[in-house]
Design a protein around this nucleic acid. Structure first.
Length: 273
DNA sequence: AGCCAGGAGTTAA
DNA sequence: TTAACTCATGGC
C-alpha cells in the first residue's frame, strides 16, 4: 500500500455526490474518520481530503487503476461550461448542485451483474445483494468470479443474496462465460448501437440495464439509461417533449455527453425528494 | 398495509 | 409493434 496525492478541487471530484448518484454500489463513507472506500473488481482504495496539503490522498496498491476508474483524464470542466452556456434550465439547476460528478470507469463484469440485480429493485437492497455475493462467494473485497457464480446452484444463489427471479439471469450469463460461449472482451471497442444490441441478447438485460452497462462498464457516453426517475423527469421537467422528441433534442444538443447529463439529472431529481 | 423500486420476459392482440 | 400481465423481495 502507498499514498498517492492528487490536487483536485471538490468541483472536479466530489465523492459524496458520486457515491450518491446511483452509479456505484460498493462505495462507502466513514463519518468518524472522514474516509471513503471504493471497491471495484478485485481491488479496493481508501481516500480522503487532506486539508494540510489541500489535496486528495488515495491509499491503494495501483493508483493507475484508480486514476482510470475515477476518469481523472477527462476534463469535466469543459463539459460543464458547455452546459452552463446552453439554455436547458433544468439541466443547469441540476449541474448547480452536482459539481464534482464524474462517470466512473467500472469493472465490466461487476457492472453487468450489478445492473442485472438493479432491475425493479431499490438501491439499498441492490447494495445488500451485491455485498452478500462478495461476502459469501468471495473474500468480501473482490467481486466473485463468473466461475464461482456459475458453480452455485440458482436457488442457492437467490437465497444467499436475496436475488429473487434475477438469480436465473445471473446464473445463465455466468454459465455462458464459463462455457466459453462468449467473452467479456467481445463488448469492448463497439459503437453505442452495436454494444446495446450485443448486451441485450442476454436474458435479463433490456434497454435500461444495457444502457447502464454501456455507460458505467464501457464508458460509452452516448448511453442514456431511462428508469422510473428519468421518465418522471422527462414528464415533469421537459413536458414540451414526448420521449422520442426529447431524445432527439438531447442527442442533437449534447452529443456524447448524454450519459453525464443523465447522471446530473438523476442525482438532482432524487435529491429533491 | 400497501406501494414502490435505476425493468424485463412472456403473451396476446 | 405495442399493451397488459407477471415476476421475488424487502425498503419505506
Amino acid at each position: 500500500m502507498a499514498i498517492f496525492k492528487q490536487e483536485l478541487t471538490l468541483e472536479e471530484f466530489n465523492p459524496e455526490i458520486i457515491m450518491n448518484s446511483g452509479q456505484v454500489f460498493r462505495m462507502t463513507y466513514d463519518k468518524k474518520t472522514r474516509v471513503y472506500e471504493a471497491k471495484s473488481g478485485s481491488r479496493e482504495v481508501l481516500f480522503y481530503f487532506n486539508e494540510k496539503d489541500d489535496c486528495f490522498d488515495f491509499v491503494c496498491e495501483n493508483f493507475e487503476f484508480w486514476k482510470a476508474y475515477f476518469d481523472f483524464d477527462t476534463d469535466y470542466g469543459r463539459i460543464n461550461r458547455q452546459i452552463l452556456l446552453g439554455e436547458d434550465a433544468f439541466l443547469k439547476k441540476a449541474l448547480d448542485v452536482s459539481f464534482g460528478m464524474r462517470i466512473l470507469r467500472q469493472d465490466l463484469f461487476e457492472t453487468i451483474i450489478s445492473y442485472m440485480i438493479s432491475q425493479n429493485n431499490n438501491i439499498p437492497r441492490i447494495k445488500k445483494s451485491i455485498n452478500a455475493l462478495c461476502d459469501y462467494l468471495s473474500d468480501g473485497v473482490a467481486f466473485p468470479t463468473y466461475e464461482v457464480l456459475a458453480s452455485v446452484p440458482e436457488a442457492e444463489l437467490s437465497a444467499l443474496a436475496g436475488l429473487g427471479y434475477r438469480a436465473e439471469y445471473i446464473s445463465l450469463f455466468c454459465k455462458g462465460l464459463a462455457g466459453g460461449e462468449f467473452s467479456l472482451e467481445d463488448y469492448h471497442g463497439l459503437t453505442y448501437e452495436v454494444a446495446l444490441e450485443a448486451l441485450m441478447k442476454h436474458k435479463g438485460i433490456g434497454p435500461k440495464v444495457a444502457n447502464c452497462i454501456a455507460l458505467y462498464g464501457l464508458h460509452i457516453m452516448d448511453s442514456y439509461p431511462i428508469d422510473t426517475w428519468m421518465k418522471k423527469i422527462i414528464k415533469e421537467d421537459y413536458s414540451q417533449y414526448d420521449l422520442k422528441s426529447y431524445m432527439d433534442y438531447l442527442h442533437g444538443n449534447y452529443p456524447r455527453m448524454e450519459g453525464y447529463i443523465q447522471q446530473l439529472q438523476f442525482y438532482y431529481k432524487r435529491s429533491l425528494k
